[in-house]
Each structure stands twice: as C-alpha cells, then as structure tokens.
Write a protein that binds this DNA or RNA. Structure first.
Length: 588
RNA sequence: CGGGUAGUAGCGCAGGGGCUAGCGCACUUGGUUCGGGACCAAGGGGUCGGAGGUUCAAAUCCUCUCUGCCCGACCA
C-alpha cells in the first residue's frame, strides 16, 4: 500500500471525546471513524487488523471442529417469540415490521437463528456432536454506548454454538472453547484472565468471561492473589463470618435521625455488622408465554457491614429486571424507608435474606416506624424469607476458596462462554432421537468473542506516547517502508521486491518531511520500520527499527533486505507463538 | 431514561444583537528547505446543527427539536 494513495489520513489532534489512549490512536492513525453513537466504520488499517484477528479466530475455531456459517442479521420475530426473549428483552433489541406487517427484529445474538437451523438438520444422536460458528454483525441498542469501540451498538462478533447429546459432550466442547479462547487471545497478544460469570439474559448455568484487565474496563473483577480465585463481582462469592449467639428478646428503641447504617451504629455505639440493612427494589417478572409483565416489591436484607449486589439479588429473585423502589411503593407494603426491615411487611413482598444475616443473631433492624429500630432481631424467629448470597464482594474480603484477602480490578469483557443446556432447544423443539428412539432436546452451548472490542483492547494495551504498536499477528501490515531520499527509484524497487516476496508493506512515498513521516509511522505503529536514507544507502544499507523499541536501530544490507525482513517477521511471529497460553478447564 | 456539557470550515477551537464570521492544523498553487510534526508568498473552503419566534438587524436573545460527549441508570 502506498501512503500517497491511502484512503485515510492521520490526524494531528484527537477528535473531541477520544478519552482513552487506544481510542484516540485508532482515530488519529486512521483505523476507525465514528458515524453515530456506538456506530463505527473500519478504514483500511482497522479493517486489515480486524481481518487478522478474524483469521486467528477462524483457525482456532476450525481446530476444535467448528464449521463456519453465516446467519442473517434480520430475523423474523417468530423465533424470538418461541423462546420468549421477544418479550423479556426490552428496548435493547430493535424491532420493525416488513412491508406486509410481519414482526422482524435485528438479531442481537443468534441462539434463536441457530437453533432453528439445527432443528432442521439434527435428527439423530448419530449427527452429534456438532459445532458451528460465524463472524457476524450484531445490533444491540445499548442505552449508553461509550469508550470508542469498547461499548458500541453495532459490532462484529464471533459466536459459536455447540450441540451435544449430553452434559459430558457439552463439557467437552466447553473445555475446547475454554482452551481455544486462551490460544486466540494470546496469539493476538492480548493478556486476559478468565472469570466465573453471570449468565444474564442468555439463560443457562455455567459461564466464564475472558477479561482484559484495564482501568478503561466497566466490569469489576474480584480476584484472589493467593489462590487464583477469580469472578465477576456480579457473582463473586466471599467467605462471610457468622456471629452467632443466644437469641435475645426484641426491643424497640428510639433512634432519631438514624437513616443510614453508619448513623445507626454510631448512635447505638455498636458495630455495623450488628445491624441488618434493607434494600428495596421493584422486580419485573415476565411471563414467557404471553409476555405480560408483573412487578413485585423485593426486600434484600444484608448485614450492615456489607452491600447488596443487585445482580445477585436479581438472580435470587428470578426477576427479569430490577429498579430501585419509590418511597410510596415501600410504604404501601408496610415498611418505612430509612427505618425499614422485613418484620411485619406485607405478605406479597419477596424477602431475600443474605446468609450473613441468617447466620448472625440479635441484629438491629428497622422498626418500620419513623425514628425507631428494633434490637435483637433474628431471621427465622422474627421474619422469614428466601436465604441466598446477595452480598457484594469487595477488596479485602476473605476469599471463598482459601480465606486470604481478595482484591478487585477493572476489566473489559472480550469473550464469554456459556453452557446453555436445553434453554433454547426445549423452547424451540430442537431434538434428536437417541439409541432407543426417544426424542431428547439437544444440549447446547454458546460462545462469543467481540472482535472490535478485542481490537480496542489491543490498541489500549499496545500503545505508548507516540501511538500504536500492535503485535505483528494483528497489525494491519508488517512493514512500514519510509523513504527519505529524493530519488524515488530506490524506494520503488525495494517496495516491489518486498511486496512480491509476499511481505505486507506500507510504503511512505509521500513528499513529506522526515519528521512527518516518522511521526505517522510511530502513530500507525507497524511492527517493522525500514528507513531509506542517504546516510545508510551510501554504505549499501537500510535502517531497521522495531516499533516496540524505537531506541534500537540496526541495519540490513540492501542486497539482502528481502531475506532479512522475512526472517525478522518470522522471528516476531514465533515470539507470539511461543507465548501462547494453554489453559485447561477443570470442571468444578 | 435522569443529570451535566457541547454543536461555528475536514479536525481542534475563538467570537456572543450591528457592517465582509475568525485563528491553528489540514487542503490548493508557486518557491525555498530536506533524517523527527520546515519556511515564505498567494489562495480555496461556512445555509454558525435544524425549525419557529423576538428585533430595523440574530452565529449572538427566546421557545421547541435533533445530534455528539461525560456521569448515573443500563449492559451477552
């Protein structure tokens, strides 16, 4: 590619809103351009890098038996009605109707489409196991796209779907993905960790997320430095101390102006752990068959020294969505905000009690009366409810596995794997006949990688104060040939030699000053830079630099540039191959 | 969806009832320079996001609206 003919140009200043380094450089180097909120075009560099990432994904998916297919972005709503997600997913899914009024949707994922495909193809256990995948556009009308390519509305995703006769088969495919994902990310050069995750709208049980740890991330990851336990905070467990003692009688006390746990503990001169905190939410429950919504007040009770993890609460409540309750809604059920507890609340309130509360005695709880609290309340004796883990893990808490202190960090989810089991095959009647002629639902798994998000994370990880420096496996091209000599012939010849040897070359043939060319080369950050200048040409040499280390310059003989460049490319590629991480999944 | 903020040349910004709307970068032409974002000269480029209103006069004031960004809610 000649830079004089390149479609994109570099920007000296970052467009407004480019707040992270990676995003800024992707824009300035001409990889991407924004069209609307959460909607981006890929320019030649960005598209090239994307194709490289996709190729790595293809190779690894093929290696575990994946067959590439392509499913439509536009789906008839019928299949989404079959699984109920047409009703349970809110505005995040865009809907429209076609010319004759049929309900249509833009697919935000392809479980429905693939299950529809599978039920037509799979008839016998002899056909299983199967694995298909695609690299396809998804549309999710996120209420708040942000951070460049990290959180967008239209994006490219690799999604694969496994089909098996039983749990063992699913486990095997899950394990294969678990390992393949580590290979994919390490071949691309992105450091990731795997965390236990919530399965969210996907349904199913076991799932893991692949996280790139970075301050630009929106997920909070809880990890144990001592034993390696990791989980998304949404589901992270921790060891809770229980404080059991003999139950004492309930006593009502005046506690004016004590609306927070902190004030209450200070007023009563007790520790926060000796109190019970009530959090009021309204859960939406959706009937999958008719799509009717109903709301229900949920009270989450945790010990005063802990916080409620809303995601855990939502899962424990089996609610479709949660929102904070309004004061009137709480009062209507016999409870008083600021002085609230589940004691004496209306019967149709869903009470969910954290095990920390169930395992502690004589806690101070709200009296459901303005200005009063109750001493010595005990779960089971004074009120009842569903016991679950609804407390939020945080740094410093004890690891659930080894008891050592946990730590927390921010991460970007770049991939995930889910065991769907029969969530989709049952509702869509995707069945096979077993050896005995019995029809059974296919056991499914689904596995995603955000391609653009991966590029964004790579840009973030591989950049310095001068620009990008992507690894050779994903860089848009391999070599940046910078010509500083007036005589175009030397450059032209070298460009032809290199490209005809199969090397990907960006040739800066522009009439620009050396400073401009170097600055652009730094910004675009191709891994190998070959500079043609009078200084070295006199000695029959060209200068070579690696982008990742601009300090070091070495040289190639002009006569053997092609061979030496090839060898250098091979060396860089091998480095990445050698760093590939092989990690096995161990079923708990 | 709530709160904030901003829309003026391709990008970054200034101007804030009055005459021809500016600056830097980028772009065009000519010349000089030529190994880390060169210099001189001459140019081109704008329905000031949109609609309505106030006014003798609106980029500027008012109303509505659209769009981007940030925080929150939300998020496989």
């Amino acid at each position: 590619m000649r830079m004089s003919r390149l479609f994109s140009k570099t920007l000296r200043e970052a467009p407004n809103g480019a707040d992270s380094k990676g995003y800024e450089y992707l824009l300035r180097a001409g990889f991407i351009r924004q069209l609307g909120a959460g909607i981006f075009s890929l320019l030649p560099f960005g598209f090239n890098a994307t194709k490289k990432i996709e190729q790595i994904i293809r190779e690894e998916m093929n290696a575990i038996g994946g067959q590439e297919i392509l499913m439509p972005l536009v789906n008839p709503a019928d299949i989404w009605k079959e699984t109920g997600r047409y009703y349970s997913i809110d505005k995040e899914m865009s809907r429209f109707s076609d010319r004759v009024g049929r309900d249509m949707v833009l697919a935000m994922t392809h479980e429905e489409a693939v299950t529809d495909l599978a039920r037509g193809e799979i008839d016998s256990y002899k056909r299983l196991p199967l694995l298909v995948y695609q690299i396809q556009t998804k549309w999710r009308d996120d209420p708040r796209p942000r951070a460049g390519l990290i959180r967008v509305r239209e994006f490219t995703m690799k999604d694969s779907y496994s089909f098996d006769v039983d749990q063992d088969g699913l486990d095997a495919q899950y394990a294969a993905h678990y390992k393949a994902y580590f290979r994919i990310f390490s071949r691309a050069g992105l450091p990731v960790i795997v965390v236990g995750a919530d399965s969210g709208m996907m349904g199913g049980k076991i799932s893991h997320e692949y996280m790139y740890l970075s301050s630009i991330g929106e997920d909070t990851i809880i990890t144990c430095p001592a034993c390696g336990y990791t989980a998304n905070r949404q589901v992270a467990a921790f060891a809770k101390t229980s404080y059991t003692e003999e139950m004492k009688p309930v006593e009502k006390v005046l506690t004016p102006e004590c609306k927070t746990i902190e004030e209450l503990a200070a007023f009563l001169k007790i520790e926060e752990r000796q109190t019970a905190k009530a959090v009021f939410m309204v859960g939406t429950f959706i009937n999958d068959t008719n799509g009717e919504e109903e709301e229900k007040l949920i009270v989450g009770i945790v010990r005063g020294d802990l916080d409620v993890e809303e995601n855990k609460l939502q899962n424990a409540a089996r609610a479709n969505a949660l929102r904070p309750a309004h004061s009137e809604e709480i009062l209507a059920k016999g409870m008083v905000p600021g002085y609230g507890s589940a004691i004496g609340c209306a019967k149709d309130v869903l009470v969910i009690v954290d095990d920390s509360v169930a395992n502690s005695n004589n806690l101070v709880a709200g009296a459901n009366e303005e200005g009063y609290h109750l001493l010595n309340t005990n779960f089971g004796r004074d009120y009842s409810g569903l016991v679950a883990d609804i407390a939020s893990a945080a740094a410093g808490y004890a690891c659930p596995e080894c008891g050592k202190p946990l730590s927390s960090s921010k991460g970007v989810e770049v991939g995930n794997i889910f065991q769907l089991n029969t969530r989709y095959s049952e509702s869509m009647n995707c069945c096979y006949q077993d050896e005995n002629g019995v029809r059974k639902p296919v056991i499914m798994g689904s596995y995603g990688i955000g391609v653009g998000r991966l590029l964004a994370c790579l840009a973030e990880n591989y950049s310095d104060e001068n620009g990008l420096s992507l690894p050779i496996s994903v860089a848009p091209m391999q070599v940046h040939l910078v010509s500083l000599v007036k005589d175009a012939e030397v450059g032209e010849n070298l460009y032809k030699q290199l490209t005809s040897a199969g090397i990907e070359v960006l040739y800066d043939d522009r009439k620009e000053s050396a400073g401009v060319k170097f600055a652009d080369a730094d910004l675009i950050g191709l891994p190998i830079r070959i500079t043609l200048g009078n200084r070295s040409l006199k000695e029959g040499k060209v200068e070579v630099k690696l982008r990742r280390n601009l300090e070091d310059t070495f040289s190639f003989e002009l006569a053997s540039v092609v061979e030496e460049t090839k060898a250098l490319i091979t060396r860089l590629e091998q480095e990445l191959e050698e760093a590939v991480v092989e990690t096995e999944w161990k079923k708990a």
